[in-house]
């Protein structure tokens, strides 16, 4: 098997995540799709680390994980805050600025 297959898988997962962000309406599911995209990017970092024979790619993937954890904490707190004021977790209902 060619190691490039990991990169193809990563591209595929990234694309699926992007579709999810566009078509799903529940903010939490949208958020999970963003996580999927981050994970797909991490897979390609790890694969490139192996291709290049040094560990820098793994360091970047590790940092991405930390940043993603921060992002989840703040993002979910925002979703809870919106849910508290609007009683809905749908991205379509957060349209106060449009009115």
């Amino acid at each position: 098997m060619n190691s490039a297959n990991y990169l193809y898988l990563s591209a595929l997962l990234f694309t699926i995540g992007a579709v999810g962000v566009v078509i799903r309406r529940n903010a939490i599911v949208v958020f999970m799709c963003v996580e999927l995209m981050l994970n797909a990017a991490n897979l390609s970092f790890v694969t490139f680390s192996r291709i290049n024979g040094n560990l820098d790619g793994q360091i970047v993937a590790f940092f991405t994980m930390v940043v993603a954890a921060c992002e989840v904490v703040v993002g979910l707190a925002i979703i809870v805050t919106i849910y508290r004021s609007r009683r809905s977790a749908s991205v379509d209902d957060a349209n106060l600025l449009k009115r």
């Binding site: 790890v46 680390s49 192996r50 993937a61 590790f62």
Partner: peptide, 21 residues
């Protein structure tokens, strides 16, 4: 993905993936 990390000689990231994600 964690299994793939471990398969690609990134054992630490594989474990971190399971623990953190």
């Amino acid at each position: 993905l964690a299994i793939f990390y471990i398969a690609q000689d990134a054992a630490f990231l594989g474990i971190v993936q399971i623990v953190v994600y």
